[in-house]
Amino acid sequence: MIPAPFAYARPTTVDEALQAIAEGGEDVKVLAGGQSLIPVMRLRLAAPETVVDLGRVAELRGVREEDDAIVVGAMTTHADVLADPLIRQYAPLVAEATATVADRQVRHRGTFGGALVHADPAGDLPAVALALDAEFVIVGPGGRRTVGASEFFVDYLTTAVQEGELLVEVRLPKLAGSWGMHYEKFNRVAQAWSIVAVAAAVRREDGRIAEARIGLTNMGPTPLRARQVEEALAGAEATADAVAAASQHAAVGTDPSSDLNAQADYRQHLATVLTRRAVSTAAGL
């Protein structure tokens, strides 16, 4: 439980950070809240040559409003996300999911950006970002680019953030209309990762479900959208039966792992049950 030796840089601006990464040698790791990186370093599953600590880069922290989006700095901690009025107003789903992340200590250190770049299949925020069609702002030696959520999550623990690049902020579009949201997490003990979880955002119009967006946590190497359920719900009556029928499709196209907590078939079963519960709650049923 002692990490291998590494060099350490603590920049104060994004430019300095990019420079430190560029100069850090072969294997550079960016340190955000350290809640995922430090354990794997201590277990010696990662042994970076240089660690670039973003803890002092003030410009990466905080939540602001920008036209039709709210913008969350990558280094905004889970605790700050939870306390933020803009998040509460425009993206309650993010707050709800963040509240289920680990415990107070971890939420005090862990960051919104770190959780997304780490892209742990069992992590709670990737599916939420996917359901909300978040956009990811990435900077690197080549400049700045914006990537949609559907392109951001590439594979197991892999995102569109390339070597030498940084995630700087995440744009959450303000949703127009009357949306209900709910994050339904299934785990065995309170501070644990999701065995399966479902993020649902539902827009209701005249007693019907006009639109539903559903993100699945831990149903494959990356977060997934339950597209078949979304299609079945679009325009459906806002009734328990309609939601239950649509939710039967939740596991279509998923590829969950089998591990101590659950084998794949059970995860697929859970996905249908949790989708029904998430959508029902989001739709106010």
Binding site: M1, A4, S36, P39, V40, R42, L43, R44, L45, A47, D120, P121, A122, Y156, L157, W193, N218, S257, S258, D259, L260, N261, A262, Q263
Partner: peptide
């Protein structure tokens, strides 16, 4: 139960017994 460890921490089941 399936015997694989869960995927949190990149599936780190234990400290590598042989080191880095």
């Amino acid at each position: 139960r399936a015997t694989a460890g869960s995927n949190a921490y990149g599936g780190a089941q234990t400290e590598t017994t042989a080191g880095v």
